[in-house]
Design a binder for these strands. Sequence first.
DNA 1: CTGAAAGCGCTTACAG
DNA 2: CTGAAAGCGCTTACAG
Lengths: 350, 350
Amino acid sequence: MSSPPRRITQAEVARIAGVSQAMVSLVLNGSDSLRVSPKTRNRIEEALRSTGYTVDIMGRRLRGKSNRILGVFSYESVFPSGVADFYRPFLLGIEEEAEAQGFDLMLFISGGRVDGRRRVYEKGENRLGIADGCILLGRHTDREELARLLDERFPFVFIGRRESSAGRVSYVGADYTTATRELYECAWAAGHFRIGLLSVSGENEATIDRRAGYLAAARVHRRQANMITEDDPRVVLAQVRARRLTALLVDSFAMAEAVRSSASAEGIRVPEDLSIAVLGDSDPTQSNAFSSEVPSEVDWTMFRIPRHEMGTRAVRMLTQLLGGVTPAEGTQLLLPCAIAEGTTVVAPPT
Amino acid sequence: MSSPPRRITQAEVARIAGVSQAMVSLVLNGSDSLRVSPKTRNRIEEALRSTGYTVDIMGRRLRGKSNRILGVFSYESVFPSGVADFYRPFLLGIEEEAEAQGFDLMLFISGGRVDGRRRVYEKGENRLGIADGCILLGRHTDREELARLLDERFPFVFIGRRESSAGRVSYVGADYTTATRELYECAWAAGHFRIGLLSVSGENEATIDRRAGYLAAARVHRRQANMITEDDPRVVLAQVRARRLTALLVDSFAMAEAVRSSASAEGIRVPEDLSIAVLGDSDPTQSNAFSSEVPSEVDWTMFRIPRHEMGTRAVRMLTQLLGGVTPAEGTQLLLPCAIAEGTTVVAPPT
DNA sequence: CTGAAAGCGCTTACAG
DNA sequence: CTGAAAGCGCTTACAG
């Protein structure tokens, strides 16, 4: 069994050409091309050709310190097989911008899982450091890990707003607060006075922001807040009836579908009897993510999360951080969500 | 303007712990753990923790050690936005198996593009070496790059059969030849005697294999070969009429749709007047890739490419290669494609 | 114009 | 048990 033939190095090329290794490097990185005599240059180039030399990027990058690698860490699978394919638009944007900026992408998936979720720190070690910096995403966040990451001053940018008591988190999020307020206004303009908010996700930033938007809008119109946190659509409908709500803002696409189908089973028509607006979904014009999500015959009134742009902006923020530049727009960015005027918010029943 | 965050080196950790840099390395790669005194080890581990040190893979790799990183290189975008989303099932399989084996994934996307395609070698430089080995995929392959890759003896596995004059390529492909033969038999069993093959892709291995399967089946039944290579569906139909074909094997889903709609425009019904079988598509039971591809009302008779499994098997092959193990099943693997008996192949018109 | 040398961060024999 | 040193392949000042 023969040992694998070694890779050609500059030193070997130099030996063949009868020059020093440094001269080979000079010819390869010929910015100061003037300084190599044509004769020597020819000899070296001939040796380069005959050996089929290719630069070993390891040596080059070690010398230059930056690996030009961006990490991507998500608490769930990166290439999801689920119907909702939540991540794809983000990843699309990340890939696009990383490619444009000449970075490779490192997907951290090796860590093993605890409770089905990945972890940054595996037996006390942060694997992310392999990359120059890292984009983090995932609906589930580990507060402790986040704090530790900040402590270590490892450069990272979160996709989605994140707060930590340990310091200032860099993020690119979507402005749920404003968008929720706008949907409230939308319902209000249609004539609704009793507008409820249905939250299904937990106590995370996304839920908090939507709630804040809802409360702000209710305050403006001097209306009482009607917030429901309930998983069972039939119970939701009972609450809707009990509170005599005519419009509902729902923070999940799937829940909106569930409420609608439960309602229809109970003879409540959407939107004639109950208007519903969905608090967020992907922009189908920016990617095909929408088409791969739960197919719906309903043209929902909702706002769109600019996932693709969030990906590109996060990469741009990170590379600026890596370059020692403080981004002009700051390191906490909330992108606006466009309102999609669907058909599920109409005038309330008289 | 803040300076770019410096990365911690072993030397700095050593300084803090008051030991030599080599001791830090020893603690990190603690195989011979016996040789470091508990006291020193503790001091070093404390310094490691407080600095948040992580190894620089370039240094490690330059020194010749593995990083447990698998590269993924594709000639097109990894996270595609196109409707067909061809890659996702592969990537799903790759991610799944890499995670199971404790490897991270390095996506090589930084190279810049020539004619819209990525390149392994960018001005003579091979970036893949950062990874321990690499999975290559992409419908477009560069013959020269493939040869060069073989020359360098860099460990890689192709997804899809690839041949090179420069040596033996490791691959995990789909057995198009057998599957095409089976679809021919399918049409034959339905009563067809004049079965044509419509190829739209170029002169690549996938096309060659399908053609081989078709020719083999025709030979068995002593029928003449009727091969069409044509992009315009109307011209295809003219040929079908001219050759009096009653069944068509089509190597592209999109082309099958196009022929069918052209046919319907000309009053030719599929399958009553013309049976059509599609040579290959994803298995929807293994991923949701199918749902995000061209939506079709037709339940095509076709075979399914086991993309997900191709991904997992490719990773397994590669890690075995990296471990110095010759895979029992060899390094050139063709996976069987399941036939999906749809509704587009029926008895020919009498 | 060219060579010798330093050093990027790391691992691994080799001495003490 | 620990430190000093060599060397992986490369780029870049620095001397000649």
